[in-house]
């Protein structure tokens, strides 16, 4: 069965919105990814998140230079344009991407400006299995006291994110998608601290 462009995407959007308004909350979109009958060579949840948000009005950038096939697939399915990193509204990061490249990209991506902070990039990141038993401590709007998350990103990654969100309201928002059809989000308002122990 193919993806239902109306109802499946609506469900995924609601899950994304739920996770974005409650950072650290992991939502499962397994019911929807089950309907995917094409192998895109990336996590189904990542592709589905892209399908919810991308269309001809926005641009994207796939960090990996070796994945022309994925760029073509995303363009074909969503009509979004692939542009250089510095201009992209959505930046797609795969698990195989090297950390040095991710850090470099994070330093260059759009973060909006003070008058229009919404003109920033949203990162859609493929991660190893997401779990709430992690060493990443989250605090901020949307979280009652604190939340924990594990997604396998390094200390340097969070440092790089910190340097791009410190001039709030400018900043970047992140959507994490794992191989078992789970998503979690991290808006720019959230402080993420990597703890040494749980």
């Amino acid at each position: 069965m193919a993806i239902d462009q109306i109802h499946d995407l609506q469900q995924v959007y609601r899950k994304l919105l739920h996770s974005m308004s409650r950072p650290g909350t992991i939502s499962s979109i397994e019911q929807e990814t089950e309907n995917m009958d094409v192998d895109f060579g990336c996590a189904d949840a990542l592709m589905l998140s892209a399908m919810v948000l991308l269309d001809a009005e926005v641009t994207f950038h796939v960090l990996s230079t070796k994945r022309r096939d994925l760029i073509e697939k995303i363009s074909e399915y969503t009509s979004a344009r692939c542009v250089p990193l510095q201009e992209a509204d959505f930046i797609i990061v795969l698990q195989e991407d090297r950390e040095s490249e991710i850090l470099e990209a994070m330093a260059q991506c759009k973060i909006g400006n003070l008058i229009d902070p919404q003109q920033s990039s949203t990162w859609i990141i493929e991660t190893p299995a997401l779990s709430n038993k992690g060493t990443l401590l989250l605090t901020g709007p949307g979280i009652e006291t604190e939340a924990h998350l594990a997604m396998g990103q390094s200390f340097e990654f969070w440092q790089a994110r910190d340097s791009r969100i410190k001039e709030y309201p400018m900043g970047i928002d992140m959507i994490f998608a794992d191989g078992s059809s789970q998503v979690a989000c991290l808006p720019r308002t959230v402080t993420a601290i990597l703890m040494e122990v749980e």
């Binding site: 462009q5 109306i6 919105l17 991308l54 009005e57 919404q118």
Partner: peptide, 26 residues
């Protein structure tokens, strides 16, 4: 069409909503 809108309109509103949630009050 389901929910009156075409899917493109919904997407645009959804993107704006996610940004709105990420920048509370803006």
């Amino acid at each position: 069409h389901f929910a009156f809108f075409d899917e493109g309109s919904k997407k645009e509103i959804r993107r704006a909503t996610l940004k709105a949630v990420a920048i509370p009050g803006y």
